[in-house]
Amino acid sequence: MSTIRQIAKEVPRVPRIAVGILVAILLFTMFMVGFDQGHLFSIVQGQPAFDNMWMHEFYHDMRHASGFPCH
């Protein structure tokens, strides 16, 4: 008589929640470091944020050093 043996093997999967959080971190921080021209602060500060560009100035030297377009 033949018997069937089932072996359950757990394969480590990449957790989707962690991937979702990492994608959000990637997009937000990349925008902040490389592309913001006052947009983020304008949410609370309005139009003056585009003149002050605090985020742009804060990341200014890193933008140049990492190859992002800058003024």
């Binding site: 994608v23 971190i25 921080t29 990349m30 990341y59 200014h60 030297d61 890193m62």
Partner: peptide, 18 residues
């Protein structure tokens, strides 16, 4: 700009690290 350099580097690293 210079004061932000270290923090900017850490954020840049976290971004590409992600």
């Amino acid at each position: 700009q210079k004061g932000g350099a270290i923090a900017a580097g850490a954020v840049y690293g976290i971004s590409l690290g992600a």
